[in-house]
């Protein structure tokens, strides 16, 4: 048995020899540009003085981790980060899928193309521009949103100075900006579904709704699961620049997130050790999240990252 297995392995190695030649270049790339610079992580465990030795003076162990793990402000900020990420995931993740499915029901090829192209326009606005648009829409003096609200209620809302509104504003602007863009993948996946399946279903008398449930959604399921797993892994990586441009001290209670907190901390000092430690902490959580999601995906569906 053992020998057979080795033989089999050997045979596979030989079979894929050419593919090894192919994959060696990207692997060298990963080593060189992703793994080599990782030595920078040692900073999280070393005392660093700005401007002096780039990788710190001496080992301090978990000093920086203790520093933030025992800091009340840190946990408040961490809670904000987590809440914003979770809400964002729940809302922003399914919408592009629904959009792609709805778009798929548009019969006219030209309108389909047109809607698709237009829907991904906002992706190309830089964060400053998007924040500028948000601010002018929500402005109590000139914004259309407040004019509508005033018409109905007679009052105005200071959206940007109300802690309760921050998450809504952040998430909806994200949906607006990235819905069309994120839908592209699903649209591409939809085009991979075999037309014959639909034809067969129609002969069987399945209506459009049933076709969607039984053919379309299973057809894009692998893409959905991969994207979901990655979205969970990346959920803590919140668009930092947008928060920075949107928030002000009065809404810190909901808007202050890990990245802005660390950024403020290091702004007039290159507080590298502390921020590296926080970053490492965040990375670990992300990795655990990804791993868990992938584990569930593998257990309960046919698709997973590995």
């Amino acid at each position: 048995m053992h020998t057979l297995n080795t033989k089999n392995n050997f045979w596979r190695l030989k079979k894929y020899g050419l593919l090894y030649c192919l994959i060696i270049l990207p692997i060298v790339y990963l080593v060189l540009f992703k793994y080599v610079p990782m030595y920078g992580i040692v900073l999280a465990f070393r005392q660093h003085y700005p401007g002096r030795a780039i990788f710190g003076e001496h080992w301090v162990g978990l000093k920086y981790f203790k520093m933030f793990l025992t800091d009340n402000t840190f946990w408040k900020v961490f809670k904000n980060t987590l809440l914003l990420s979770i809400f964002n995931l729940i809302i922003s993740f399914p919408i592009p899928i629904i959009f792609a499915l709805m778009l798929n029901e548009i019969k006219s090829k030209n309108s389909k193309k047109f809607i698709q192209t237009v829907s991904y326009l906002p992706r190309f606005f830089s964060t400053v521009v998007v924040v500028g648009i948000i601010k002018s829409l929500l402005s109590p003096s000139t914004g259309i949103v407040n004019e509508v609200i005033q018409f109905f209620t007679g009052d105005k809302i200071l959206f940007l100075s109300e802690p309760g509104w921050f998450r809504t504003i952040y998430i909806f602007s994200d949906v607006w900006q990235f819905m069309g863009w994120n839908a592209i993948l699903y649209i591409a996946a939809l085009s991979g579904i075999d037309n014959q399946q639909y034809e067969a279903a129609m002969i069987d008398g399945a209506n459009r709704w049933k076709q969607t449930i039984h053919i379309t959604i299973p057809g894009i399921m692998p893409t959905i699961i991969i994207c979901f797993t990655l979205a969970v892994g990346n959920m803590l990586m919140i668009g930092f620049e947008k928060v920075l441009l949107l928030y002000s001290p009065i809404i810190y209670s909901t808007a202050d997130i890990l990245q802005t907190f660390v950024f403020r901390m290091g702004i007039d000092q290159g507080h590298f050790s502390y921020s590296t430690a926080v970053g490492l902490f965040q990375s670990l959580i992300s990795l655990v999240l990804l791993w868990t999601t992938n584990w569930f995906a593998r257990k309960y569906t046919d698709y997973s990252l590995w």
Partner: peptide, 16 residues
Amino acid sequence: VFTMFFSGGLIPLYLL
């Protein structure tokens, strides 16, 4: 996948 989450920061990359 590991490299999606862990990076050594800007300075090491710059030096590289």
